[in-house]
Every structure is written in structure tokens, then in C-alpha cells.
Amino acid sequence: MDLALLRTFVTVHRAGSFTRAAALLGLSQPAVTSQIRTLERQLGRPLFLRQARGVTPTPIGDELAHKVAPHLDALMEITEIGLDEESSVRTLHIAGPPEFTAERALPALTELTRDDGQSIALRASFGTAEESVEGLAAGHHDLAITTARPRGPLLTATPLCDEEHVLVASPRWAARIGSGALHRAAAPSLEKLPMVEVHESLPLIQRYWATVFDSRPAVSGTVVVPDLRAVLACVITGAGLAVLPRYLCASALEQGEVVALLDPPVPPLRTYFLVVRTGTLASPHIARAHEWLLRAAVDWS
């Protein structure tokens, strides 16, 4: 049986779409459709059910994918090892949220480029979780860091680390609020104050209020800027209150530039996931980066 047909079949099975599989394989959609039909004729069984949006594998299709995918991934690994021996540099494309990627992932991967015996060149893209996952699925990235676990067999997600959120303000605002007011009626007291956020929907403030106060904030953003590092800078200058990841504001807290207004017994957490296309960990440079980030993340929680 033609291995190219099986490779196309496994890609369609993981992608759930002829169109997406074509993009991953660098083929036209008619070519992918033709290869699947050829394989179905050879087997005498339908492998996919065509639907309005993508395809669903038949029981025979699922069985075949389960049997052949590990062997095709192993062949890919052999090929990639050979390529690594011929080329001294492999390029790794990573996507993720700008702050976390810049402050944590890229510094860790930069250590990999210095310390690893085989050189890795880095290319980073910033975007939302949805944008990063879509780019990964389309083959534009090798790794993606997201705050949402993607569904479906095309992508494989591994929990990377948890991020603690802290309600912070400048010392001037903290002094004006007073600890007594916070302990008596925290949410109403805070909602009278200016808020700094990354989006009009106040995603971090909403999550904090739901977890700590069991309520929804009746506020709107006074300053909205789409980068948490800029949010921190605005808070330091006294623009208002904000909810920030502890790793991002740890230095400012230590230096007294901002103050943590509350210390809840159960602080809000957000989980990051390290996502790859299923089967691509057979590529040594992707596998090394994946393992390296998981090791580094042990110290990030």
C-alpha cells in the first residue's frame, strides 16, 4: 500500500477536514480528496463520512488510523533525525500570548539554543489563544502556548503551568482604600475605583471577582490597553487597580511600586497549555523544545 496515501489519510483523520489536511500537507484539496478515494477503493470500505463541516471517520477509518499512525510517526522521526544530521540549524516556530511568551517561554528557549548540541533558530508570533491554535492547526507554528485546551485529534495539549492572579494598585491608591474597607465590603469599595485592563470585557477582573467575591463586577475599564506589561506600567503610575499575573508583577511588588490589595485563601488561577499538532513530537527539534519548556515550567508555578 502506498505510504503517501496513508500519510494523507492520517492527516485527514487528525485534521477532521480535507481542506485543513491539504494545507498541512502542502497539497490541493482535490488532490487530498483523490488520494482518500483511491485508498477507499483499495480497501473496499469508506473511511470518512462527508459532512457540511469537515469529515467524520467511519469505524473502519478509526481502526485504520489507530493501527497505522504510530508507524507513520516513527518513520517521520527517522526522517527528521536524518535531516538533523545534514543541517546544523532547525527553525522552531512558536506562538502564544505576548506577555507570557516574552517573559517566560522565549527566555527558556533561548537557553536551549545556547546549551543544546544541535542549534535551534527561534521564530515567535504573538496572538490570542484562538489565533495561536488556528495558526498551529494550519501548520504555521510548531508549538503554541494557550490558555484554552483545544479539542479534536489534530492537536495535542499538555498542561504547562498555572498562573496566579493578584489584585494590585499603586501605594497611593492602596492608602486611600485602606485595609478596613477592603475587609468589610471589598467588592463594592473597589468598584468605585478606576480599573486598568487588557480588553473592554475586563477578562481578568471578571475572573477575579467571580472567584474571590462570587459576583460580577459592576465596573468598566478606565484604561484599556492590550498588553499586560502596559497595564502594569499604568498601575505603577497610579492609573487605577488591575488584576495581573503574579510572575509579571512580582518585581514591582518586591520593590513597593505596587501593592497587593487582597490575599485570598484561594487565589484565581489560569492554566497554560503547551500544544502541538499530533505526531509532530517525532521531530527532534520540536520534541526538545517541548521537553525543555515543560522542565522550565516546574519553577514557574
Rank of each mutant, 00 (worst) to 15 (best):
L6M: 14
R7V: 01
T8P: 04
T11E: 13
H13M: 02
R20K: 08
A22T: 08
G26C: 01
L27K: 14
L27T: 03
S34K: 05
Q35S: 15
L39I: 01
L39E: 02
L43Y: 07
H71N: 07
M76G: 13
I78L: 15
I78P: 00
E85A: 14
E86I: 08
E86V: 06
R90D: 10
L92W: 04
F100Q: 01
E103D: 14
L109Q: 06
L109R: 12
E111Y: 12
T113W: 07
G117E: 11
S119R: 14
A124K: 13
S125C: 09
T128D: 04
A129Y: 01
E130C: 00
A137P: 00
A138N: 11
L143E: 08
A148L: 08
R151A: 13
T156W: 06
L160N: 01
V168A: 11
A169Q: 09
A169M: 04
G178C: 01
G180R: 14
L182P: 06
A187W: 02
E191S: 08
K192I: 13
Q206G: 08
R216K: 07
P217L: 00
V219Q: 02
S220R: 15
S220L: 10
G221R: 05
T222G: 11
D227C: 04
L228T: 12
A233K: 10
A233R: 09
G238R: 03
R246Q: 13
L248G: 13
L253I: 07
G256V: 08
V258Y: 13
V259I: 15
F273V: 09
L274H: 10
R277V: 13
G279I: 07
G279C: 10
T280V: 08
T280Q: 07
A287I: 01
